[in-house]
Amino acid sequence: MLHRFVRLSFKQECIEEFQNLFHDVKEKIENFDGCQSVELLQDAEAKNQFMTFSIWENEKALEAYRQSEFFQSTWKKTKLMFNDKPKAFSMYKAGIKE
Rank of each mutant, 00 (worst) to 15 (best):
D33E: 06
K60P: 11
F89C: 14
K79N: 11
D24P: 04
D43M: 02
A88Y: 10
Y92C: 09
C35D: 01
F53S: 10
N31Q: 08
F32Q: 02
N48W: 07
M81E: 08
V6H: 14
P86M: 10
V6D: 12
K60V: 13
Q19P: 01
A46T: 12
S90G: 10
L2P: 13
Q19D: 10
E59P: 15
S90A: 15
E45T: 12
D84A: 13
E69R: 15
N58E: 06
C35E: 00
K85S: 14
N58L: 10
R66M: 13
G95I: 01
V38N: 02
K97D: 15
M81A: 06
A61S: 05
V6W: 07
V6E: 09
A46W: 09
L8M: 02
D24I: 06
E30Y: 02
M81V: 06
E45R: 11
K97W: 13
D24K: 04
S90I: 14
E16W: 05
Q49F: 13
C14G: 04
K11N: 03
F71L: 09
M51T: 14
E39Q: 13
A88Q: 08
D43E: 05
Q72L: 14
E45P: 05
F22M: 00
M91Y: 08
R4P: 06
E63Q: 11
L41M: 03
W56K: 01
R7F: 10
N83E: 09
F5E: 07
D84L: 12
N58C: 08
H3K: 05
R66F: 05
K26E: 00
F10P: 02
I55M: 07
K87E: 11
R4M: 13
A44V: 09
E17D: 07
W75Y: 15
C35H: 01
R4G: 08
W56R: 03
M81S: 06
K97M: 09
N31G: 04
K85L: 08
E63N: 10
F71Q: 06
S54Y: 05
W56C: 01
Q12S: 12
D43P: 03
A88D: 14
D84M: 15
F10E: 01
E63W: 11
A94S: 06
G34W: 00
I96G: 04
F71V: 07
M51Q: 09
D24L: 05
F22Y: 00
S37E: 05
V38H: 00
E59T: 10
T52C: 07
Q12H: 12
E27D: 04
L40M: 01
E45C: 14
M91D: 15
T78M: 15
F50P: 05
D33L: 04
S54A: 08
C35G: 03
I55G: 12
N58Y: 08
S37R: 03
A46K: 13
K26Y: 01
D43H: 08
L80P: 10
